[in-house]
Amino acid sequence: MFKLLLLCLALLPAFAGAQEDSDWIEYRDAYRQMIWFEKYGKPKQFLQNHFRIRPRDKSVPTDGLRLTLNGKATHVALPLDALGRAVFPFSKAAYDDNAELAVNRKAGQLKSGAWVSIVTRPDGVYAAADLRTACDQLLAYLRYSGEAAGKSCAGVQFSYPKNDVSQVQFHAAGGAVTMLAPKEGPAFSGDAVTTFRVFVYRFAALPETGQVVTSSTPLAIAALLE
């Protein structure tokens, strides 16, 4: 299976719930995790960085999951996508205020932290060369952050909701079309939820030149590192 390791996994804060029905993370801790990607100076045009909330095991419900930024003068809802990712608000005011990121779940049920993945394209067309470069960029970033030692890029994975009917094809430069076979699995390595519809594009299994064409925008594209 692929392995997507993200910045500061070893430093992810343990959730400390001050209330019985909620959990929270210090904004300053999250800020320090997220700023690494912003300051990273090597090529990263194919990468994106989110703050992500994910369940520790599959018994934790994600329906209705909410993330809010709370401070003395701040109360902002941070929308989460289907994979628990939010656009992180870099705010000097929140930092100075020692604000908190609150989650409407009991303490210990969730993990949080920076989460780097490959950018999706609205037109659904990905040059094979770009996907290889994207995987290399992600691998280089993980090595910069002290992860993925000894790993190499084997491919990428496209993830969709379980009942989605989208298709993913490889169009070779010579015109041949190969349908990628879907399977059930996690959107990212190590996730507790393993019921997504995923398509794995292995670089070695198909020609070097061509395009991956998706019939709709995937929830995420993850790097396959082995």
Rank of each mutant, 00 (worst) to 15 (best):
L6V: 10
L7P: 14
L7K: 10
C8E: 13
L9H: 15
P13L: 09
A14C: 07
A18N: 04
E20A: 09
D21C: 06
S22Q: 05
D23M: 06
E26S: 11
R28N: 10
R28A: 07
R28G: 07
D29I: 04
D29C: 04
Y31S: 13
Y31H: 13
Q33H: 07
I35N: 07
W36S: 10
F37H: 07
K39V: 07
K44W: 08
L47A: 02
Q48F: 00
N49Y: 07
I53M: 13
I53S: 13
R54C: 05
P55N: 14
R56K: 12
D57T: 00
D57V: 02
D57E: 01
D57K: 03
D63N: 11
L65V: 02
R66L: 02
R66D: 01
R66I: 00
L67P: 01
L67Q: 00
T68P: 11
L69W: 02
A73T: 08
A73W: 07
H75D: 10
V76W: 13
L78G: 01
L78A: 01
P79G: 05
L80T: 04
D81N: 13
A82L: 06
G84I: 01
G84S: 10
R85P: 01
F88T: 01
F90W: 01
S91N: 08
Y95R: 03
N98C: 07
A99W: 09
A99C: 14
L101M: 05
N104G: 00
A107D: 04
A107L: 02
G108Q: 07
G113E: 05
W115H: 06
W115Q: 02
V116S: 03
R121F: 10
P122V: 05
A127T: 05
R132Q: 07
R132I: 10
T133I: 08
A134R: 13
L139S: 06
L142S: 12
R143S: 03
S145L: 00
G155W: 12
V156M: 04
V156I: 12
Q157D: 03
F158I: 00
F158R: 03
S159E: 08
Y160I: 05
P161W: 05
P161M: 06
K162R: 14
D164G: 12
D164H: 09
V165K: 11
S166A: 11
Q167T: 13
V168E: 10
V168Y: 09
Q169T: 15
F170C: 06
A172K: 03
G174H: 09
G175T: 04
V177F: 02
L180T: 07
P182V: 05
P182T: 08
P182W: 11
E184P: 04
G185I: 02
P186E: 15
A192C: 00
T194C: 14
T195R: 06
T195K: 03
V198P: 11
V200Y: 11
Y201R: 03
R202L: 15
R202A: 14
A204W: 01
L206D: 00
E208G: 14
T209G: 12
T209M: 09
G210H: 06
V212D: 01
V213E: 08
S216N: 15
L219R: 02
I221T: 10
I221M: 13
A222H: 08
